[in-house]
């Protein structure tokens, strides 16, 4: 009996490891290719072990192209992402509190509007938004990337925060109200400190989506000096301009490194965010 159980355990863990390694293979392959000498990348391509570790690929890749190094792209992405995260935290906390705790008229219809926009394909508003930003003179600036975050541009985050705030006992608000706290005071002193885990989730998600975002910068940024990492990498990997594959793989790895690190350290918040949005909804 015991032995049968052991065999089952071995089969379980064994098959999960095999599927898992298959799944993770493309990522290992990217890392391995980024360290291979040029002539090894596409010969015995499947191998994950470079004959020598060619770290120069990274130094060479970082030089970028056309006099623009990846330092520029990383700084640009860093700036845009930071601003978007700040904007998202600001708007989603305020708006979620309004929906979850203040009993104003038209709250329900407005809430329904917000839920509907959750499911609105972004392509529908893309063109008129472009025309709007074009007329405002915002094309080729970071404004179209940053401003929407400050005005609740991603309803998913508001929804996530509302779900979280609804779970906080009302007695806390009432006690603060009895002590003469204003509504804003309740938000600032009572609710906001309690929502830190949800805020962390929101911050991580908005970091990911902004860092990854390709379409928005592609549409709004023309000047290569303003390019984010995603755009820079796309340019760098253009088949007509790639002369060396090693540096291209090296920069691919570099571009996903921030995401990987954040995932390693803040996994918990991410998992909570995904499940809170999906199950409690």
């Amino acid at each position: 009996m015991k032995r049968r159980k052991n065999i089952k355990t071995v089969i379980y863990h064994g098959s999960i490891w095999i599927i898992g390694l298959l799944m993770i293979y493309p990522i290992f392959w990217t890392i391995a290719s980024s360290l291979k000498p040029e002539n090894e990348i596409f010969r015995n391509s499947a191998s994950l072990i470079p004959s020598i570790f060619k770290w120069e690929n990274y130094a060479q890749g970082w030089q970028g192209f056309g006099g623009l190094s990846f330092s520029t792209f990383f700084l640009n992405s860093g700036f845009v992402t930071t601003m978007v995260v700040i904007g998202t935290l600001f708007s989603s906390a305020l708006v979620a509190f309004g929906f979850a705790r203040v009993k104003f008229r038209f709250r329900t219809p407005l809430f329904v509007c917000m839920i509907i926009t959750l499911m609105l394909p972004s392509q529908v508003t893309l063109i008129p938004q472009y025309i709007l930003f074009h007329n405002l003179g915002w094309v080729n600036t970071y404004m179209p990337l940053i401003v929407p975050a400050f005005i609740g541009g991603t309803p998913f985050f508001i929804f996530l925060m509302i779900q979280f705030i609804r779970g906080i006992p009302h007695e806390l608000d009432e006690a603060a109200y009895m002590d003469g706290c204003s509504t804003f005071g309740i938000f600032w002193r009572v609710i906001l400190p309690l929502t830190t885990p949800a805020l962390a989730t929101v911050a991580i998600f908005s970091f990911y989506w902004t860092w990854d975002d390709f379409m928005t910068p592609l549409i709004y940024l023309n000047d290569t000096k303003l390019y984010t990492v995603a755009l820079g990498l796309q340019m760098f990997s253009d088949p007509s301009s790639v002369s060396a594959w090693g540096p291209m793989f090296a920069m691919s790895v570099a571009s996903i490194l921030p995401q990987l690190l954040i995932f390693m350290f803040f996994q918990k918040y991410l998992v909570e965010g995904i499940t809170a949005g999906g199950v409690k909804g």
């Binding site: 708007s91 305020l94 309004g98 009993k103 917000m114 926009t117 709007l132 929407p148 005005i151 541009g153």
Partner: peptide
């Protein structure tokens, strides 16, 4: 008023960047 003040960021965004553009 308080409620609208709190949801103002989203409401502005909704009117200017969703409904208007649509």
């Amino acid at each position: 008023l308080v409620g609208l003040a709190f949801i103002a960021p989203w409401l502005i965004g909704f009117l200017c960047f969703i409904i208007g553009p649509m």
